[in-house]
Design a protein around this nucleic acid. Sequence first.
DNA 1: CGTCCGCTTGACGATCCTCAAGAGCCGTGG
DNA 2: CCACGGCTCTTGAGGATCGTCAAGCGGACG
Lengths: 236, 236
Amino acid sequence: MHAPHTNCAVCVVRDRALCASLDDEELKALSNIGRHRRLSRGETLIWVGESGTVCANVVSGVLQMTTATSDGREQIVGLLFPGDFVGQPFATEASLTFAALTDAELCVYPRTAFVSLLSEHGALERALFHRTMDALDEARSRMLTLGRRSAGEKVAGLLVELSERLPHDADDTGADSFELPLSRAQIADVLGLTIETVSRQMTKLRDAGAIAIARRRRIAILDLDRLMERADIPHA
Amino acid sequence: MHAPHTNCAVCVVRDRALCASLDDEELKALSNIGRHRRLSRGETLIWVGESGTVCANVVSGVLQMTTATSDGREQIVGLLFPGDFVGQPFATEASLTFAALTDAELCVYPRTAFVSLLSEHGALERALFHRTMDALDEARSRMLTLGRRSAGEKVAGLLVELSERLPHDADDTGADSFELPLSRAQIADVLGLTIETVSRQMTKLRDAGAIAIARRRRIAILDLDRLMERADIPHA
DNA sequence: CGTCCGCTTGACGATCCTCAAGAGCCGTGG
DNA sequence: CCACGGCTCTTGAGGATCGTCAAGCGGACG
């Protein structure tokens, strides 16, 4: 589970993750407290309420952050892609659950050790600060979607977003496409909808010729303009 | 409009705002670039897309942060109370509109000057960093509300939240109560509802004996337990 | 006292949810 | 390699919640 840390110099997210803003010395300090860890799809890294928690960088795969109401209704409040930062460094108890949507690789740091490193290295702290600001912008834009957009707009918007952030490859027919990391239930939990509504909206988009769906999870964007129009994403 | 800055030592939010974590020297540096400013209800401090923007601390009153879809549907993504920090220091263009819900007093700092101050004073930067983390937690908890709670739960929850953050005084009957800083339309924009739904939920809460409403805007909490139960706020 | 604006209330309708059944994909085991 | 079972997804019918449209109330202010 906890492999010794491998070499940062050859890391695939070296220039996208937090690490990008560190000099060699800082990078070494960070890598000293880090461990490489693999998660398999569905595995949870941090549970709500947990105290001896961790921070991490996503190397590969996709994670979700979730909250829930007291009676069990779930809301996914964010998705984490390669290069993204994971965790709540200043919280003694986690207020969210972090879990893997796909098999994933992380660089994991014990929370307290990471926090001391933050206070010693201004560049690290500043980099995380800027990322936190970006996360706040993203959260607020999701609030607009949750509060004010229709089911159709929500689904179209999420597909555009995922298409931009996920690796593309060719499907059976050779068309450019990507693999959905989320089940219909998880899409519903991101958008504040139900499974059935998500499913219906996806077939609507398919019937409208905006997307193609193969094997449930493989999506090809056939008409990006139409998709963005439906998603209420301004002028191309 | 721009009065010279008054004395921080006597400021009412001296120990609640960002300033609380500053020593005398840092406080002086901050106050040197700050100006006192009054906003009247409805007045906008920062418009979306604006570039020569500002940061501020709220001294008194309540502000709102809003976004909107391209066709004009609005969402209030946050409320700002005395002691809260206002603005987007690292954004060259504002992505939100900041406006006053009530008459308000602010300590306003030019954005770029504030950012230089941040990089010179670690304590200031760290304090704002922690506040940003808190804001992120709040945004995510609002996402749960927007995505997964019913109209009744939303309204009850907002009333509890406002009751906790706003000053209370006695109404005509002498009962403990507070003045709503938001119109029904603004409440709707916080919760992702319509005016009419908000109005109906409020009269439901009144008829259930949970609250009393006087002159539209004055609210008395009669049964906090029932209100919190309806709001899905766990065990008292 | 009269007008205006914000709020309330009602009737109706659309969107989305619920419940239910069935289809397709996938891994498992014969 | 095919058959089976389980799970996810799709599709349909019906219903609840919330939005829309419209009218009327009432407090605030001139």
